[in-house]
């Protein structure tokens, strides 16, 4: 791959991933956090493809973006949706 495209894609993906991770942490709504966390995993799987690891990318895509997010949503459903200080509707 052209190394300029490689670098540009990597910079773009890392900036998006770190921004999504920060949004995961500061959001008071835990369901929103779980979905943003799935976005972090999705971009991580893209980076795995960029680093020539397609096997790992397949595992990360289905585990990180589907299963982890969903078991977190199930756990939040058994507890409370909002962090303390977040609005209770």
């Amino acid at each position: 791959m052209n190394s300029l495209i490689f670098l540009a894609l990597a910079i773009l993906m890392f900036i998006t991933m770190v921004a999504l991770a920060v949004a995961t942490v500061i959001s008071k709504d835990l369901i929103k956090s779980a979905i943003l966390l799935a976005g972090v995993s999705l971009i991580a799987s893209f980076l795995f493809v960029l680093m020539r690891a397609p096997d790992v990318a397949m595992a990360e895509a289905s585990i990180g973006s589907a299963l982890t997010a969903m078991i977190m949503v199930y756990a939040i459903g058994r507890t409370r949706r909002f962090e303390e200080g977040g609005e209770e509707k």
Partner: peptide
């Protein structure tokens, strides 16, 4: 690309 772990989680 793929294998038992990936296929299992799919």
């Amino acid at each position: 690309p793929g294998g038992g772990f990936q296929g299992g989680v799919i």
